[in-house]
Design a protein around this nucleic acid. Sequence first.
DNA 1: TACTGCGGGTGGT
DNA 2: ACCACCCGCAGTA
Length: 457
Amino acid sequence: MVILTSRADMSEGQPTPEWDINDAVVPRVTSFDTFSEWCDGHVRRVYPPACEEARRHASGWAMRNTNNHNVHILKKSCLGVLVCSARCRLPDGSRVHLRPAICDKARKKQQGKPCPNRMCNGGRLEVQPCRGHCGYPVTHFWRHTEHAIFFQAKGAHDHPRPEAKGASEVRRTLGAGRRVRGLALLLAREAAIADKILTVKPDKQMSQNICTPHQKQPPPLIPDNQRGLTCTCGPFECSCRWRTEHPTEAYAAPAWSPVEAQGYGAYAPPASSVPNLPPQQHYDPATLPADDIFHPEEIFQLDQPIRLDFPIEETTLESPPTFADLNDNSRPEEAYWLDWQRAAGGSESSETPSPELFGNGYQQADAYCEQQTYPPQMYYPEEAHQYYPVENTRTSPVMQMQEQRYYRYGQDCGQNSMDMQSWNYTDCAFPSNDVSECKQYYDAQHHQTMNAFSELL
DNA sequence: TACTGCGGGTGGT
DNA sequence: ACCACCCGCAGTA
């Protein structure tokens, strides 16, 4: 069995192999990266063939298959994130960011549904498209060889992370049900959800997925930096639960303006560092009332026309259509649902606050290709050590440099290392005549990254 | 019902 | 030529 090592362990002092997903031949590697489902920025990774997540081309981002007419390279493009058209805020200051359905039909059904946030005034769900790659959606590329699975991401997501895939899956899996009552039940269900994820779908962990089994850890139901908090107020009423995660400044962010909210702007993605997760809180799922299952995706099943624009009707203003209202619901359910998506989707992202918290920290994403900010803007300088690791650096596994073996679409062939493809910045989607421009920008940003990083060390 | 991968096809650059 | 994107199909869960 191949012993997998994290890149952090092996990158130091090692030459960086250069390859591009489109290279005719890709290097054969002996060490692999740890799987991360939240890759952001221009990232290259190599996973072992046995890595289940890699085999499934898993991603925390909502990636849909894109036909690139290349049977050897699977291409996926980011669908963005489902947000509230009113950019409403939860009590903790964060915003709604759900996972868009991959299926076009299902995604269209999602759009136009009332924002599940009861505190939202007339907001409706809409897809915030990803424009993180030169104005186009971030793309992921997967390429399989006999000995490795190559992954390459192009572009930096300019939107918050959607809820993790597991959240929506679990909601679906849990099936129809009714309501939850009270915080204890909410918490218990959170635990049950995580338990379900870890037991029923062990290969679909939402947190930092590490291919090495001994490194696999369950996602925290409550982020580490919140775990110490205990309160008895409900998630929507609670004003303390999430506070430690977000500095006060986050709440001083200017109110969202429709004019300037065409997008969230450049999103500073967190590094996918492997958190040291404390033991899970344990709740016995068996204690959950079987008929009390909350069914959040009901909001996507509402039989109402899809609205591409979101006119705010008077009645809407007076009585905002919310999930609770539409379902004769009480507050805790929706609170829980949002809490749920935060807990599930935020298992890793909770390591870093959702970027919408930062308000003016966002940059306008209108500049062509300028949202490719490397490094990500430091919203929390004090946590720079956490944010700056390898995720947005050009990374690659260590190769055997002595006897390079290359694959030509699966064919194994020996090759001199001098023939290695160099990183020629064609990973930028610029047309060929714009590559140099992109390269200059990339170079500048890369140097910026290194300088900033070295200062932090 | 939705996810996923595949592939034909279209339109823009 | 390359790109994003649309659509339908089939297999799967």
